[in-house]
Simulated assay, not measured.
Amino acid sequence: MNSTLTTWVDRVNNEQFLINARESARKLWLCSLGAYSLASKSSVRAVAKLVREGKAFSPKARQQIEDKYAELRSSATATMARGEELVQDRIVRPLDFLVLATKRDVEQLSARMMRLASEVHSLAAAETRPIVAEKKTV
């Protein structure tokens, strides 16, 4: 083959390659736009469907949440009752055995001591008055 013909064939091949590449790039671009359009339409429909299902599921979910809350609350109450019982068994009852005074006991004893002290003072004052009176008469 002569060089002019070879150059011309190479040129035609190169142009054909560029045309094919452009056409492939154009098809790829259109395919991407189509996928984007389809995805946006699908996402709008999917979101609308999820909202509808969420509204339908809301009462069920609320009931399930309330049921779980009641179950957890009763479990916590039972656990706290067991804890209080353990405190009673292991701390309070042994302290009762030791007969330790409570704050209320101390307050009652203090009030009783105050009353007794006032009675003692009044009795002491009553005893000293007659003695003073007897000394004046002598």
Rank of each mutant, 00 (worst) to 15 (best):
residue 44 V to Q: 02
residue 69 Y to W: 09
residue 81 A to Q: 02
residue 92 V to A: 15
residue 106 V to D: 03
residue 112 R to K: 14
residue 7 T to S: 13
residue 56 A to N: 13
residue 21 A to Q: 07
residue 47 V to A: 04
residue 121 H to S: 07
residue 94 P to K: 06
residue 86 L to Q: 08
residue 64 Q to Y: 08
residue 128 T to G: 07
residue 49 K to R: 15
residue 52 R to Q: 02
residue 102 T to I: 08
residue 44 V to S: 04
residue 132 V to S: 12
residue 108 Q to N: 09
residue 8 W to C: 07
residue 98 L to W: 09
residue 45 R to T: 06
residue 125 A to R: 03
residue 4 T to I: 12
residue 21 A to C: 11
residue 91 I to D: 02
residue 17 F to Q: 07
residue 15 E to N: 14
residue 39 A to E: 15
residue 21 A to V: 06
residue 136 K to P: 00
residue 39 A to D: 15
residue 75 S to D: 04
residue 118 S to R: 08
residue 122 S to F: 07
residue 18 L to K: 14
residue 15 E to C: 13
residue 75 S to I: 01
residue 118 S to L: 07
residue 41 K to E: 02
residue 71 E to G: 00
residue 105 D to S: 13
residue 115 R to N: 06
residue 101 A to C: 10
residue 95 L to G: 10
residue 45 R to N: 08
residue 3 S to E: 14
residue 47 V to Q: 01
residue 103 K to I: 14
residue 71 E to L: 09
residue 90 R to D: 01
residue 61 A to W: 01
residue 16 Q to L: 15
residue 34 G to D: 14
residue 86 L to I: 04
residue 36 Y to P: 00
residue 40 S to F: 08
residue 109 L to C: 14
residue 68 K to E: 14
residue 35 A to D: 11
residue 121 H to Q: 06
residue 114 M to L: 14
residue 37 S to G: 06
residue 49 K to V: 01
residue 15 E to T: 12
residue 109 L to W: 13
residue 41 K to Q: 13
residue 67 D to V: 05
residue 82 R to A: 08
residue 39 A to G: 05
residue 12 V to Q: 12
residue 11 R to M: 06
residue 50 L to V: 04
residue 80 M to C: 03
residue 20 N to E: 15
residue 3 S to F: 04
residue 18 L to E: 08
residue 2 N to D: 11
residue 106 V to H: 03
residue 91 I to K: 00
residue 10 D to Y: 01
residue 56 A to Q: 08
residue 68 K to L: 15
residue 83 G to H: 08
residue 10 D to M: 05
residue 32 S to C: 12
residue 108 Q to K: 13
residue 24 S to K: 07
residue 47 V to G: 00
residue 108 Q to C: 06
residue 119 E to T: 02
residue 115 R to S: 11
